[in-house]
């Protein structure tokens, strides 16, 4: 693969990665929210929440919650190396505990992480075939429901839906690598595949600010033409101000 072609591939990877969020289908977050709400409703539970592993896999961050304490829970972080949720993520095994308030130390752990002290907790792993993503928890199921072992299986189905939604959203957040990687996988062992893989690796981590801007563009695309024209003129005004500022002598 010639050097100019490699350069083109690297640019393509960067461009795709920057545009990913603008192209992402609407509603990943809304889907996760609806999954936690549906699970809470089905189990007659006080709360349901989803916590995802951080990039370095040392912490769990609550990204989505419904029910008691929901507004306090979102964005809370806790070490992945402790607690019921941590063990579920590490072991990839579901678990339920039914007498939390008998154990003051344990209950305070949970209270700190969820803003709500439950009597019971049901937690199952959220994972795709490639990786473990996090944990989904249901607090205080309706006591008249069948045993926890039954609801564990049901909650696992919700967890699978959540895993699909998360993996889809992440594929768009890293579109450059995803696309080049997919094309490379279709031509294994060829010089083209090697060049594609190299370009995908060099595309690097997506830039946070650009991803945010790209996501906003995606949102604008779903609004009307008037909003898009307004946004364009705002961006043009900003750019002309910035360019003008750049020309001024310091």
């Amino acid at each position: 693969m010639s050097e100019p072609a490699g350069e083109v591939l690297r640019d393509l990877a960067r461009l795709l990665t920057g545009m990913g969020p603008a192209l992402a289908p609407e509603g990943s977050e809304a889907l996760l929210q609806s999954i936690t709400e549906a699970a809470r409703e089905l189990f007659g539970a006080q709360a349901c929440s989803l916590a995802l592993l951080t990039v370095d896999q040392s912490e769990l961050v609550f990204t989505t919650a419904s029910g008691a304490g929901a507004s306090d829970v979102v964005d809370l972080r806790m070490p992945a190396g402790q607690g019921i949720a941590g063990w579920v993520v590490m072991s990839e095994q579901p678990i339920s505990v039914s007498d939390l308030q008998n154990d003051a130390r344990f209950a305070s752990d949970v209270a700190q992480s969820t803003g709500y002290v439950p009597r019971t907790i049901l937690a199952v792993p959220v994972a795709s075939p490639r990786r473990t993503l996090g944990v989904i928890e249901v607090l205080d199921r309706d006591t008249s429901r069948p045993g926890a072992e039954h609801d564990m299986r049901l909650l696992s189905l919700f967890a699978d839906q959540a895993a699909l939604a998360i993996e889809n959203a992440r594929a768009f957040a890293d579109l450059g690598r995803s696309v080049l990687g997919a094309v490379a996988a279709a031509a294994p062992g060829t010089p083209l595949a090697a060049a594609l893989t190299a370009a995908a690796e060099e595309a690097g981590e997506p830039d946070g600010d650009l991803l945010r801007l790209s996501a906003l563009l995606g949102e604008l695309d779903r609004l009307g033409p008037a909003e898009r024209r307004l946004a364009s003129s705002l961006v043009e005004a900003l750019l002309s101000y910035v360019r003008g500022r750049g020309r001024r002598p310091s």
């Binding site: 072991s91 095994q93 579901p94 678990i95 007498d99 008998n102 154990d103 130390r105 344990f106």
Partner: peptide
């Protein structure tokens, strides 16, 4: 048995 010399009531294949 659980941490801190206590016990919990729990459910799981584990």
């Amino acid at each position: 048995a659980w941490k801190g010399d206590g016990t919990i009531v729990s459910t799981g294949n584990s």
